[in-house]
Amino acid sequence: HKLGLEVVAEGVEQSAQLQFLRKLGCNMVQGYYLSKPLPVTELAAMLALNLNDLY
């Protein structure tokens, strides 16, 4: 953050990890805790349902 960069955490698999990253001000996360890898059609459907608000 001090370098003006956004921080992305990869491999988030547990609620405790997500909470810790939120406290640190992490900009984005990805990992199995939020979703398994999806085909583009399933991803589009998920985003249409606003399930991306988990973070």
Score class of each variant (00 low, 15 high):
H1T: 04
L3W: 09
L3K: 08
L3H: 13
L3N: 11
G4V: 04
L5S: 09
E6G: 09
E6H: 12
E6C: 02
V7Y: 06
V8L: 09
A9Q: 01
A9F: 01
E10P: 06
E10R: 01
V12S: 03
S15H: 13
Q17W: 01
Q17D: 02
L18Y: 05
L18I: 04
F20H: 14
F20W: 11
F20T: 15
F20D: 15
L21R: 05
L21K: 06
L21Q: 13
L21C: 06
R22H: 06
R22K: 15
K23S: 15
K23L: 11
L24E: 12
L24G: 07
L24V: 11
N27C: 04
M28T: 14
M28W: 09
M28R: 15
M28Q: 11
M28K: 15
M28I: 07
V29M: 08
Y32F: 13
Y32Q: 12
Y32C: 09
Y32A: 05
Y32I: 04
Y33P: 03
Y33F: 15
L34Q: 11
L34D: 07
L34T: 08
L34K: 06
S35G: 10
S35H: 12
K36T: 10
K36R: 11
P37Q: 07
L38R: 01
P39S: 13
E42I: 04
E42S: 13
L43P: 05
L43K: 14
L43A: 15
A44F: 05
A44E: 12
A45N: 07
A45R: 13
A45K: 12
A45L: 03
A48G: 05
L49N: 11
N50A: 10
N50S: 13
L51E: 06
N52M: 04
D53H: 09
D53V: 14
L54E: 00
L54I: 11
L54H: 04
Y55A: 07
Y55I: 00
